[in-house]
């Protein structure tokens, strides 16, 4: 099982290196949306706005990244994947790959966002919580959206359905994430804010488990 997961992960990363324009397009998307936001707002000193705008940009980037995970596998390669690996390994591999991708993207996005929008709001932040929010946010968004991407990839209307199916499911996670990250920026102590982190972790693990159980039914063809 773990060997298969590792193999799929390695294959995905290798493919990404071979087609750097695909990866670059997502980063360009993040950069472009931050730039557009910068043109609109210039500098944001208001914490809720700063925080919410960042996560909304990340959310749409996550949709973009996740919907690629299965769309890039054309039919022949799907059959090949199917023959070499169990579906459980495929979904876990894809989820881990998406999580890594999102971690890099959120990290880079946070730096670009900070440079453009100003980091004044972070002066009193509880930095450890904020970094944890970035990490959990990246992993959770990737985990929840991977199964939705697998679902949408099976239909003809991939991009449109991805948004319709994904938004209501990701919304609870996103609301908690925005609250957790806002509290972290406001410098609220871990003792008062930690519950949210546990909730985020619980949702991420739950979606991992559900995807593991449900994905084989999507893969059957």
């Amino acid at each position: 099982m773990w060997n298969e997961v590792r193999a799929i992960l390695a294959k995905d990363i290798r493919m990404e290196w071979r087609q750097p324009h695909a990866l670059g397009s997502i980063f360009l998307y993040v950069f472009a949306s931050i730039f557009v936001a910068y043109m609109g707002f210039k500098r944001i000193v208001d914490v809720p706005t700063w925080n919410a705008l960042f996560w909304i940009i990340v959310l749409f980037a996550a949709f973009n990244a996740a919907s690629r995970a299965f769309a890039v596998e054309h039919h022949g390669r799907k059959l090949y994947l199917y023959s070499i690996a169990r579906p459980e390994s495929v979904i876990i591999g894809k989820m881990v790959y998406n999580a890594l991708l999102m971690l890099v993207m959120v990290g880079a996005g946070a730096i670009i966002y900070g440079v453009m929008m100003g980091t004044d709001v972070l002066r009193e932040a509880h930095m450890l919580s904020f970094v944890l929010a970035l990490t959990l946010g990246a992993i959770g968004l990737a985990f929840v959206l991977t199964l939705i991407a697998a679902l949408a990839a099976q239909t003809d209307n991939n991009i449109g359905l991805m948004a319709i199916l994904g938004l209501p499911v990701i919304l609870p996670f996103l609301l908690i994430l925005i609250r957790f990250s806002k509290n972290a920026i406001d410098g609220i102590a871990w003792s008062a804010n930690g519950t949210y982190a546990w909730q985020l972790l619980a949702i991420a693990i739950l979606s991992l488990g559900l995807s593991y159980i449900l994905f084989p039914y999507l893969w059957r063809e």
């Binding site: 199964l147 499911v169 909730q199 949702i203 739950l206 559900l210 449900l214 039914y217």
Partner: peptide, 22 residues
């Protein structure tokens, strides 16, 4: 039916978490 079933299960758990627990 298969796709809708998978979505139903996944979404129901997420919804329940949000409506009842959080």
């Amino acid at each position: 039916g298969r796709l809708a079933g998978v979505y139903n299960i996944f979404a129901f758990v997420m919804m329940l978490l949000f409506v009842m627990v959080l």
